[in-house]
Simulated assay, not measured.
Amino acid sequence: MEVLAGRGRLTVEQEAELAELQPKAEQWQKKKEEGDAARSLAGKVAADRVSVLEVLAGRGRLTVEQEAELRELRPKVAQQKQKQNESAAEVSQGKNGCCRSCCGVGGVGGAGAAD
């Protein structure tokens, strides 16, 4: 609807609906961003903890609890790293669709293609 509003093509009913939905959409977006930030921070903390525990393990100084913690965190951190690598690969290969649809960059023969 915002696209239509930008073009000046909304009916009175659509304008009212848009005015009603925009605050809800903004609130949802803010909650999503906060959740994303919390997950990102938690992932970084886990990765840091794995690094510390691995250094201690290399020195032979892990307690039984720390060994259990390391066994629990390693797969989670590895999975997070794999997701990050896949996401980075998608962006670098233009699979996110942005550059192809908006700019023509990334596609063969697109507006951004080298001649």
Rank of each mutant, 00 (worst) to 15 (best):
V77W: 07
Q66R: 08
A78F: 02
A68T: 09
A46F: 01
K81H: 10
V77R: 04
E69Q: 11
A88Q: 13
Q80C: 00
K95R: 14
A37N: 05
E65A: 15
V45A: 11
V52N: 07
E65L: 12
P75A: 09
C98N: 09
D48N: 13
G43V: 03
E54M: 13
V45M: 09
G60S: 06
N96M: 11
S101C: 02
A111V: 14
D48G: 15
S101H: 07
K81Y: 06
V45Y: 01
G110D: 06
L73T: 07
A42F: 02
R71D: 09
R74D: 04
R39D: 15
A37R: 11
R74C: 10
L53C: 08
T63H: 07
Q93Y: 01
Q80D: 11
A89G: 02
A47T: 06
V50T: 08
G60K: 04
L56I: 01
K76M: 09
G109I: 10
C103L: 14
R49E: 14
S87R: 12
R39C: 11
G97V: 02
A89P: 00
L53D: 08
K81T: 05
E86N: 11
S92I: 01
A111H: 11
V91G: 00
C103H: 13
C102S: 09
C102G: 02
V45C: 00
A78R: 11
V55D: 15
S51F: 07
S87A: 14
N96K: 08
A78I: 00
C98Q: 10
G97A: 08
L70P: 06
L62K: 06
G94E: 06
V55C: 01
K95C: 01
L62R: 06
A78P: 02
A68W: 02
L53E: 07
D48C: 01
R71G: 02
S87I: 09
C102H: 04
G107E: 11
S40Y: 13
G58D: 04
G97P: 00
E69H: 03
R100I: 07
D48I: 00
K44H: 05
A78W: 01
A42S: 12
A57I: 03
V45E: 15
A38R: 15
P75R: 07
R59E: 10
S101K: 12
G58W: 03
E69T: 05
V77Q: 03
V64P: 09
V108Q: 09
C98R: 12
